[in-house]
């Protein structure tokens, strides 16, 4: 039993609003957003279709993603200053060398080769490319062998396009 004092009406109404909102928040659900933790897990290599989807269409999320990467990347290759004459410029930074090599067997495919000079350090598991137009591609990398990580990408893929662009910013994680 509770006495309802009219003189408390205004204060009680505000408190009721807060209680009501808490109950709504605790009982109702609304889709469409992702949390920073989920984005962070994706940066660390987790598979998440929803995050992948939102990264493809939301520039703001991509920028947050890049910021998280910057804090945890093993290697960061900023935009190259000089233009390259090669189709696929080689990129160097911090004991790491990234290059593309055309496949003889399949002309529509390229070998993506990451060479780490210090094999004692942690080896990257993913390559993240940020183009000058703020497009973004993530390539999962296989395990390293003798400091070399090698995989295949399609010549007409976004990854190949971005690797051909010297102004692409590269993170290895």
């Amino acid at each position: 039993m509770t006495h309802i004092h009219p003189d408390l009406l205004e204060d009680a109404q505000q408190r009721f609003g807060e209680l009501h909102n808490v109950r709504e928040v605790m009982t109702k659900r609304e889709s469409g957003a992702i949390s920073l933790g989920r984005l962070y897990a994706y940066v660390q290599g987790a598979q998440d279709d929803a995050v992948q989807d939102i990264l493809g269409r939301d520039l703001k999320v991509r920028r947050v993603y890049r910021s998280l990467l910057q804090k945890s990347a093993l290697v960061h290759m900023p935009q190259a200053l000089a233009a390259s004459t090669q189709d696929y410029p080689e990129r160097h930074a911090d004991g790491c060398h990234i290059r593309l090599q055309a496949s003889r067997a399949q002309s529509d495919q390229l070998y993506l080769i990451v060479e780490m000079s210090d094999q004692r350090r942690d080896m990257p598991q993913s390559l993240h490319l940020f183009g000058p137009d703020e497009t973004m591609v993530r390539v999962a990398l296989p395990a390293a062998r003798n400091g070399v990580i090698q995989t295949i990408i399609e010549r007409n893929s976004d990854a190949a396009r971005l690797l051909g662009e010297p102004k692409t910013e590269i993170f290895l994680r």
Partner: peptide, 29 residues
């Protein structure tokens, strides 16, 4: 098919696609 390639590692690929088999590193060894 077997094709000599100027790459650091040998690779085993599926149906001429860019899909690399998980045993690829063992193949390289």
């Amino acid at each position: 098919r077997i094709t000599p390639e100027p790459a650091p590692q040998s690779m085993m690929c599926l149906r001429r696609q860019s899909e690399v088999l998980p045993i690829s590193l063992d193949y390289d060894d």
